[in-house]
Design a binder for these strands. Structure first.
Lengths: 244, 244
DNA sequence: CGAGCTGTTGACATTGCTCAAATTTCGTGG
DNA sequence: CCACGAAATTTGAGCAATGTCAACAGCTCG
């Protein structure tokens, strides 16, 4: 169902001049690679396009490749045998995925919309880390940040109410949508479906939907489209969300 | 309330010959340090004893130190402003704690029972990582494992029922209590209280207690003491737990 | 324009929570 | 060693939040 088609195979779009023009070069893992060494990077990476819902890899698969998101949105998830799903994170351009604990991916990854990923063999990354210690530092830093986010999400999943979960989720989106200067009216685009949001927050789609409606009635948000959230007053939203 | 007293300050128990006799030397981060370099390690670490409930550090504090657990059990937790608590993990001897994302601890840590920690300045760890790249590798590996565990816990918190949560928790304890040879009757010691278990599983103590009682009625476990769980037949427990 | 998917809303069911009380365990002091 | 008090755990009853099932509405894409 998910992997409809692979638009490009690894060898397409593999052109040597790309890295230095890459949109995410300064925020992705690649930021740890000096400009003069970009050639090394270019020789080992490939760009691939993914269609909406297309699988990037599945839980339990051999973790042969690691990826950087250069465009689009990705969901990471874990499944139970009966199909229950927990989305463990949403990734956006600049994010890294594929670091596996012991040889196999511990979660699945799918494109949410049209996405572009830059991938390299896990072995090449190992070599890169050996050659350029800064890359290892960077990855360790990124792992720490991911872990911090995971702990925050555990707090959300284990201890927050539906309303608090949705509020926290919206605030997370706001902080990731920089340019939002705090004071003024903000419009958030939700690339993911209600099902995704529910599976991320540990709720059903009905509860997510009802909670959005509730927040709309409270005047905290507006919903011109299902995929857009307007925040007329960010401060009110912040006050409503659970603190610390 | 928590930090009643510090049994030893950093300088006590700081004796140069300890590392090579350390119980956890081969499972902790220190395993990445060659035997011949243990001297370097010994010069930068201190052992400290902690009493039950004693705080090791709190969320938001400056992350000046990192720690290895050499004895006892530790809980990591995050709090909401109104006191709701989510325990993000239990640590046992050999586990590492204190790696912070950006200068401050992203969670609090407390001793559950009488515990012994081996600590070093975060800066010294940085130096150690530079001098001995294997240490950095090891920490990256440990971070990956932690992240994998965190994702598994998100699945539990977001998508499992109370019964499934408790079953998964028991199985986790079993896998950590090696020596349990799968076939035979196993007794688990629970160093943590029902409150801790509840805060770890996203449940109330009452639900934890009721679920234990339920599993006892089902014959899956026995509870000679509140702090002991006997598993008469591990296979039955595994079958009862949610898969994948 | 219509089919199909996604999202919303309503009615009802259920799980797990809250509050309360009984029971057991644990630590302390005699 | 025993008694006592405090704390932790267990159990019960009722309730609230969220899930389930079902119908409806709105959007998207052919």
């Amino acid at each position: 169902m998910a992997q409809v088609y692979r638009i490009n195979t690894q060898d397409d779009n593999h052109c040597a001049q790309k890295c230095e023009q890459c949109d995410v070069r300064h925020i992705a893992m690649c930021a740890a690679v000096e400009f003069s060494h970009l050639g090394v990077l270019e020789r080992i990476v490939s760009h691939t396009l993914y269609a909406p819902r297309q699988s990037i890899f599945e839980e339990g698969e051999e973790a042969d490749y690691v990826y950087n998101v250069s465009r689009g949105n990705i969901r990471l998830y874990k499944l139970l045998a009966d199909g229950r799903r927990q989305i463990t994170g949403f990734l956006r351009p600049g994010d890294f995925l594929g670091l596996a604990a012991r040889g196999t991916y511990s979660y699945g990854a799918e494109a949410i919309d049209n996405a572009e990923l830059c991938c390299m063999r896990a072995g090449d990354l190992e070599l890169l880390m050996t050659t350029m210690p800064a890359v290892r530092d960077r990855l360790l830093d990124m792992s720490r940040d991911e872990l911090t986010a995971a702990q925050e999400q555990m707090l959300l999943l284990g201890r927050k109410s539906a309303r608090e979960k949705v509020l926290s989720f919206l605030l997370l989106l706001v902080t990731h949508t920089e340019g939002a200067d705090g004071r003024k009216r903000t419009t958030l685009e939700l690339p993911m479906s209600r099902t995704d949001i529910g599976d991320y927050l540990g709720l059903t789609i009905e509860t997510v939907s009802r909670t959005f409606s509730l927040l709309r009635k409270e005047g905290l948000i507006d919903l011109p489209l299902a995929s857009q959230v307007v925040i007329p007053n960010l401060e009110k939203l912040v006050d409503a969300a659970p603190t610390r």
